[in-house]
Design a protein around this nucleic acid. Structure first.
Lengths: 135, 135
DNA sequence: CAGCATCCAGCTTGATACTG
DNA sequence: CAGTATCAAGCTGGATGCTG
């Protein structure tokens, strides 16, 4: 039996996010993480400065934003442009790669957003059956 | 001030993942969370039992899988079918909504996977410039 | 098999304070 | 402005043991 099953439409890559040790898993986590996704999404509109981003990504702390940006920069998804002026000015923007990934991410986000009515309805049904659990 | 800017191609929904309090944020977290995405991806192939899933999603613990499945079921993305047999048999499968979302997610995953060579190259460049930091 | 309850280490996160 | 450093606290997640 040759189970050549496909999980996604295509699948012949050396990287498999389903494997615990695959580096793609970490990158996916950076992209989809609590703040990574929102940061990428915000930058999709265009270049932003640190504090602009901070305001845009509602709820992120200084530290988390900083960490997130570093991870995304390291992965080559975000470009950091520091001007040696006074006061300092640093702009962040998506790289070509970052834009590719972010487009897919936004498609997903948009899909989730437009499904929310169904999701909330499902939640109500679930909570009726399972009284108490509110995970 | 009315900043009616658009972040994604289309945007006229009552739900905005960028807002801290929006429920869509939580759902997106369920979908893209550490285990949520992998679980959905695994189920995209077809219905699976609890322990099959556990083996499929490399690295997930019983507890996390259980929690993840409950969240996804509550959001109406996964359907849980419990047969009252002995030994018990429970099958999990995507709902129509779940399949919609998962398709987008898999597109993203696939995009990340096929970008990994570039990502790893970017990482190497970054680490050369910034010695020491390995976030 | 399919889970839930509990315990607990440790990583993540958020405030706060400080630097260039 | 654009961060870094530090610290406390809380949540995440794994291991274990138990149930139906």
């Amino acid at each position: 039996m040759d189970n050549t099953e496909e999980r996604a439409p295509e699948r012949d890559l050396p990287y498999d996010v389903f494997a615990k040790a695959c580096p793609s898993r970490r990158t996916l986590e950076h992209v989809t993480g609590r703040w990574g996704g929102l940061t990428l999404g915000a930058l999709y509109e265009g270049s932003l400065r640190f504090n602009e981003l901070r305001r845009r990504v509602d709820g992120v702390s200084e530290k988390m934003l900083s960490q997130t940006l570093q991870a995304l920069e390291r992965d080559g998804l975000v470009h950091r442009e520091a001007r040696p002026t006074n006061p300092p000015r640093v702009d962040y923007e998506l790289t070509a790669l970052g834009r590719e990934v972010t487009e897919r991410l936004l498609t997903l986000i948009h899909c989730v957003e437009s499904s929310m009515d169904d999701v909330l309805a499902a939640r109500r049904r679930y909570d009726e059956r399972q009284p108490g659990v509110t995970a």
